[in-house]
Design a protein around this nucleic acid. Structure first.
Lengths: 241, 241
DNA sequence: GGCGGATTTTGAACTAGATTCAAATTTTGA
DNA sequence: TCAAAATTTGAATCTAGTTCAAAATCCGCC
């Protein structure tokens, strides 16, 4: 017995095989040149087999994006479980993202494409559902931090829901990713490390929300100390900087 | 004489004809189903003629996005020239964007696609340059507001460049657009009008930056009054709400 | 007006690459 | 060992973007 299960495992394993191959090919030749036939070939399978797993190329792209975000969730979770003040943890989320970008530099370009109407709508409904589910914990973790902040008196909601409070930092982060990944946009300005700057703006936003304890991010040394501190405390085992 | 010029004008006109047709088709059948042959057909031209204007489909998409952003610039410019305090004008920029989304609901979906690596890199370099140029005034106008705020004492840069200050609100805005336009993401949360919320977060951010005069956005009535006020003062002639 | 070269337009033909599906192969259970 | 079921295969199909040689039009000149 169990041969049925073994088969299921084999098939699931192959799904990852395909996704990894796709990731490699993207790294190698760029998103632009990703071809279904090449993915199959690289794995020594026929294209038909690839299509047994993914209903279409778009389906595969969404799957790949969802798969990546598993790693993002892992980083977020560390921050969620970090024993620290709520404000530090909120900033920690941003640092986690910063970390994530460093570890998976191609992810946001892919995600940007995957969530594009053209790709998103062409993926299968199940795949879309899975991709949304894969991202859900991210919001969950943020919400938890906001809720705890309210409970322990670091923050007052002032008529917003926790989700609504979270949307501010969230939008700031997403927006920064978007700006960073569209090349040409940042070049025309006079801007240093955009992610460091994002952290700074996040602090301004949190100050504006009166999230205790207030922090002065114009103190560059203190800001750096804080980021570095989060890196060593939470992401100790991962290369930092 | 002048017949050469007339020809140039005709060709330029045709470019708009094509872009308008593309816009129509997108509105009608969705970005997903946009086909070059259809665009040409709709304008009673052969595909070859269409390709005389746009090097590729991607080229056309980027051109369309750039063309749209002309309208966005127009709205921003109004805010830039508005006789009001610098803080009100900064918020006005966000309201302008809010306005723009209402007037051109398809724009951000298109822009999201156009700035995607796959499309962006496949467009011609000139087109990319033009698209960046078309967007430049947006940043310019923001920078001006920041600079004026510094001059008149409403704001202190605290070691940032004006661009760096502007990047915060900018990222917040872009991020909100991105979140709003990926369907399925917002549904799972418990969030009201996301753009109204964005305005609120923008105020928190500006408060955090200590941009004078401070404003309490948790006073919902005052927030609404402010948004409404900007609409009537700056966008008087455009339908509001 | 009519002529000849230059320019523009045309759309059928070409192409790349995603997708399909009937045949071949492998697995399963008796 | 065998046949039905499930899986894999990859050549064939299909779709839509792109090209380019021929046709049409424009232009200056006689």
């Amino acid at each position: 017995m169990g041969t049925k299960e073994r088969r299921v495992r084999e098939v699931a394993g192959r799904e990852h095989l395909f996704l990894d191959a796709a990731r490699d090919l993207i790294r190698q030749d760029g998103l632009l040149n990703l071809q279904m036939a090449r993915i199959a070939e690289k794995c020594d399978y026929a294209v038909g087999t690839l299509y047994q797993h993914f209903a279409s190329k778009e389906d595969l792209l969404v799957a790949l994006s969802a798969d990546n975000s598993q790693h993002r969730v892992d980083l977020f979770r560390r921050v969620g479980e970090w024993k620290a003040g709520t404000r530090d943890r909120m900033v920690g989320i941003a640092v986690a993202d910063l970390m994530f970008v460093k570890l998976y530099p191609e992810h946001f370009r892919l995600a940007q494409l995957a969530f594009t109407e053209v790709v998103w709508k062409a993926a299968s409904p199940e795949r879309r559902r899975m991709a949304l589910e894969a991202g859900e914990p991210l919001g969950q973790i943020c919400d938890n931090i906001v809720e705890e902040a309210v409970r322990c008196g670091d923050l007052r909601l002032k008529g917003m829901t926790p989700q609504e409070v979270g949307l501010g930092p969230w939008a700031l982060t997403i927006g920064t990713h978007t700006i960073v990944h569209v090349d040409g946009v940042l070049e025309q300005g006079d801007i240093g490390d955009p992610y460091r700057l994002m952290t700074r703006h996040l602090h301004y936003l949190l100050n504006g929300l009166d999230w205790q304890p207030l922090f002065d991010p114009s103190d560059e040394a203190a800001l750096d100390r804080m980021i570095k501190g989060i890196c060593t405390e939470v992401f100790n085992d991962i290369v930092c900087q």
